[in-house]
Design a protein around this nucleic acid. Sequence first.
DNA 1: TTGAAAGCGGTACCAG
DNA 2: CTGGTACCGCTTTCAA
Lengths: 331, 331
Amino acid sequence: MRVGMTEVAAKAGVSVTTVSHVLSGRRPVAEETRARVLQVIERLGYQPNALAQGLRTQRTMTVGLLVPDLTNPFYPMVLRGLEDVLAPAGYHSLVCNTDGTREQENDFLKTMASRRVDGVVIAPFQLTRKDLLGFAQTMPLVRLGGGPFDADLGDLVRSDDEGGMTQAVRYLIEQGSGRVAYIGGAAHAGPSDLRESGYRRALAEADREVDEDLIVRGDFTRNAGREAAESLLARADRPDAIACANDLIAIGVLDAARKLGLSVPDELAVTGYDDIDAASLVHPALTTVVNPAREVGRACGEALLRQLAANESEPARELVIANSLVRRESA
Amino acid sequence: MRVGMTEVAAKAGVSVTTVSHVLSGRRPVAEETRARVLQVIERLGYQPNALAQGLRTQRTMTVGLLVPDLTNPFYPMVLRGLEDVLAPAGYHSLVCNTDGTREQENDFLKTMASRRVDGVVIAPFQLTRKDLLGFAQTMPLVRLGGGPFDADLGDLVRSDDEGGMTQAVRYLIEQGSGRVAYIGGAAHAGPSDLRESGYRRALAEADREVDEDLIVRGDFTRNAGREAAESLLARADRPDAIACANDLIAIGVLDAARKLGLSVPDELAVTGYDDIDAASLVHPALTTVVNPAREVGRACGEALLRQLAANESEPARELVIANSLVRRESA
DNA sequence: TTGAAAGCGGTACCAG
DNA sequence: CTGGTACCGCTTTCAA
């Protein structure tokens, strides 16, 4: 079986109190005793029981991260960012895939409560304000880019989807595109609305009118992108640039352009969004907007740390992380 | 503060013993009492303390997963597979990024021990047999595709890299390629050797001699692939097919082919390995070998479950998961 | 400089 | 069908 502190104490000829203190350093221990204890610990391969520690101290040094699907490369990066700031502070993280399902989101939140994590970061998809409220009251909660800011629900960290798209379209215009079209995802789905309004904002800035016929909404897939592009490019007054709501759509647009024999970016400029791995691997490489996942993760970690350190509960904050355009070959 | 079982018991007018039993169902409780207790639990929003449970029962219903980098899409899939089989059994998983460094691998393994997880799955990169041995003795351990099988170190799950590459090369030969070249990663790095020997085996099966000049080793990157391909294709007797040790290399080969104006797959057939997301997004889409991550994860989960269920420690097993070729456009 | 002992919040044995 | 209570392994007063 596993050795406990009692055994260490016995073998070292001291009390458990002393063992505890050489480990925590929370009170001076005679150098000689210290050495002896340490030696026994080493010899026995003693590992403190984190469960007992947590039970006693009411701190588990663990935070939960609840995301819809770790298979979406955005989230592992968020996790890295989270760990960047939490690990140095001694925290570990417990990750859960909620599949974006309300039941799972709730279940895992309960599990987190049960395990007495010190805080949680959640990217909520289905959870209602009411669901979250109960948890926000019992532990530090940070929301990751979902829904409107609500002070009762803890800090909110999100990336600036609107601003990012504005940058992309602004760039397209600067490069001399006369007619810039937009292919989006379904209305109200995920970041759809924000990105679309970013498009509109850029046109407005340039004093251009938005031609609603140049806006197509499908879903966030390559096929949807190809089809939308085909219809757009079949028009007599076809656009010479297309801003896409994500990279997959943009890759679909590239497919369409190849099929029509249009050269990118000369005859048609294309921008994506997200900067997935494939963005730099396709040909021509996509000019796209990076959603700085790692930064977002860091921000979540800092928000959590701030709440963890505070004695009183701090007022909630909203933190918006800027997105930036990366120029490659497609525009 | 948080409510405990004592409060629930008090408010329901029963003993903690009874509360415990209505929750666990490990002994009959009068329906009337049961209902009353449940009602109080609901009203108080009571959540059992998993730490206390774990401390007492010596089971945490948690398994650790230690991987080099969750940002490598292979691992999130492994995690899904692991959860596919572990979640129904009531287990949760604690994931750690070891960055493939020996120190982190060791540290996290210690943390896992400290947290008294019921078992761990680890993809060891730097850990020596000696490091692992200590842990394998104290908890169920499953190794994920690293190093040779060693019964003392617990179960080993790996994918069949050699067989996968053999399939790819065999396919290339069947398609009529006369000279099949191979671009690999650095010798002894990761799956390098196995994949290369898969290439050799396929040639041997077809009674072809291997021309060592047709084997180039660089590293697992796009640039290395492009450079290797350029040198290979500059030869007078240039190959009409190239099998690559991974998809990134293959994408580099595609770059080279495009530059030389060679049409793929007609003038040059290309195969990759891994089936990363980009494999199906580049043009032409890569014919490649899928490493069935989710299956691997499931196998790990099953191995763990088997050990967890066993009273005595079961003899260790090695489990090899087949890889399969997916035909797309590049070959 | 060190120790004794009271919990943290459950589980499970032993009784009734 | 229900309770009392020892104990899991640690931290933290309180005392010496």
